[in-house]
Amino acid sequence: MERLSERLAAVESVLRKLEPVENLLQRLDLLENSIYTTKKVFTFQEACMYIGVSESMLYKLTASKEIPHYKPRGKMVYFAKEELDEWLLQNCEPTIDDANRMAAESAAAEPFFNQRRHGKRKKD
């Protein structure tokens, strides 16, 4: 383990000396991002990277049919980008401002109940 860490440190020092490599890594990142914006259908591995889960997690999601997917020939699994986006955006958590606004709206719409009387109307 110690030898591995020494080798890794040596590789890192060589990479730091090569300045153009940093530009290359940035360009690779840009290319990866552009792939995700232009493709409409993802393979299993691309979907893992796109939604940020491990292969085992995505396998569990597909096996339990919790995520939309396609198996055109019964083996290979494919995912539609639009459906993945919809799946990622489900179960929206409201912000504090949204929650306060919804609470104020529902309080104005519902009659006042006295909590001490367990839901009975407060007598006027």
Rank of each mutant, 00 (worst) to 15 (best):
A9V: 09
E105H: 08
V21H: 09
K17A: 12
K60W: 03
V77W: 00
M57C: 07
A109T: 08
K122Y: 14
E110R: 14
L31R: 09
L30Y: 13
I51K: 01
K17W: 06
G52S: 02
L89W: 07
L31P: 03
V11D: 07
R116L: 14
K60I: 05
R117F: 06
K65Q: 15
L15R: 14
L88D: 04
L18Q: 10
I51S: 03
H69K: 03
K81G: 00
S5T: 14
R117K: 10
V14T: 08
M1D: 10
Q115W: 06
E22V: 13
N114P: 00
S5Q: 15
F42A: 04
E12F: 12
L30T: 11
S13E: 13
K75S: 11
K75W: 05
C48L: 01
P20R: 00
R117Y: 05
T95V: 10
L4R: 12
Y36K: 11
K60D: 08
M102S: 15
Q90T: 14
Y78S: 01
V77F: 00
A108W: 07
H69S: 04
E55K: 14
L61Y: 14
K75D: 08
Y50N: 01
L31G: 03
Y78V: 02
P72M: 04
E55L: 06
E55A: 15
D85L: 09
Y59E: 05
P68I: 00
Y70E: 15
E22D: 13
M102D: 14
E19Q: 12
L25M: 13
M76R: 12
K120G: 05
L18W: 07
M57Y: 06
K60R: 15
R73S: 14
K75V: 12
A80V: 04
L15H: 13
P68E: 02
N114H: 01
M49Y: 10
I96H: 06
S34E: 15
T38F: 04
F113K: 12
H69D: 02
F112W: 10
K123H: 06
T37N: 04
E110A: 10
F79L: 04
H118E: 10
E12S: 11
E2G: 10
Y50I: 01
G119Y: 07
R73Y: 11
I67Q: 02
D97G: 08
